[in-house]
């Protein structure tokens, strides 16, 4: 036996082991790539080649079915965490000029006591998204909608960049000693409420979520109530409505006053 070459077809051990291994591989491939996919009627495979491709994981774009279109305007902003994070001095300069018309409600420095949002230091992507939603009608306000309707895409980016550039100014209600409500720090896991801070800063920031420190309590409360009732629907895929619906009136009150007192 020792004088016989090991890797030779004349060696019966070699022939049998390679043959059996190949047979197992072929049978497994037939089972996995053809038989199993075809045994799933809901896959609606076009044939053997389709079965092999889908089982091997060849990606394909999801079929664009004619689903139900919304009967209201939804936000068309494509939100990413990199959006409008690059500082552009020209944009800020243009924004400063454009923002003069915003000053009557939002304050010359982006801060006011008019219960309108304080925009100084707000993330540019947030201000841009809301302006765009006012313009498209995804968010409606008798005051803001006409202003936004006249703005170009670049105008909105410039104004957003300008307000992002302004330093945050603490509100008159600043009270950093105020204890954070449970809903802000830990949320209410039993009611599908993540901590406010996991998106709105302090703990983490999710793209598109505004910085809430120093905002008017009246404004925060009104927005949460609008999300809960469905009067405001420009949050992408219900991300804020899902939360606000589950909040109690008391919790809404607590977060509104807590964030107002924050820097």
């Amino acid at each position: 036996m020792s004088d016989q070459p090991l890797f030779s077809l004349r060696n019966p051990w070699f022939g049998a082991s390679v043959g059996i291994t190949a047979a197992i591989a072929v049978l497994s491939a037939v089972a996995g790539l053809i038989w199993l996919p075809l045994a799933q009627p809901n896959l609606k495979l076009a044939g053997v080649w389709d079965a092999i491709c889908s089982a091997a994981g060849v990606p394909r774009a999801a079929v664009q079915e004619t689903g139900i279109k919304p009967d209201f305007k939804t936000s068309n902003v494509v939100m990413t965490s990199e959006m409008l994070t690059k500082v552009n001095q020209v944009s800020i300069g243009r924004g400063a000029t454009l923002a003069q018309r915003c000053a009557i409600c939002h304050g010359p420095q982006g801060v006011s006591d008019a219960h309108s949002p304080n925009l100084a230091g707000q993330f540019a992507a947030v201000t841009y998204k809301e302006l765009n939603d006012f313009k498209t009608g995804a968010r409606v306000s008798v005051v803001m909608s006409p202003f936004a309707a006249a703005m170009s895409d670049q105008d909105m980016k410039d104004v957003a960049a300008y307000y992002a550039y302004l330093p945050r100014v603490p509100s008159n209600n600043l009270d950093t000693g105020r204890p954070a409500p449970v809903i802000v720090v830990t949320g209410a896991p039993m009611r599908n409420i993540a901590p406010c801070g996991s998106c709105h800063g302090d703990v983490d920031n999710k793209a598109g979520s505004p910085w809430l420190g120093g905002q008017s309590a009246v404004y925060i409360k009104a927005q949460l109530e609008a999300f809960a009732s469905g009067a405001r629907r420009n949050d992408i895929s219900q991300q804020m409505r899902n939360i606000a619906r589950q909040m109690t009136a008391d919790e809404i009150d607590q977060v509104a006053h807590y964030y107002e007192a924050q820097p």
């Binding site: 199993l36 896959l43 889908s54 060849v58 774009a61 079929v63 664009q64 919304p70 939804t74 939100m79």
Partner: peptide, 29 residues
């Protein structure tokens, strides 16, 4: 075959950034 494990039969892609704009994952669908 008896679906004790359910490996997915197809790999389909959908852009996570634009789910809300068109296609089957818009809010109303």
């Amino acid at each position: 075959i008896h679906q004790a494990t359910m490996p997915q039969g197809r790999v389909e892609t959908a852009d996570p950034k634009t789910l809300h704009l068109s296609g089957e994952f818009v809010e109303s669908n």
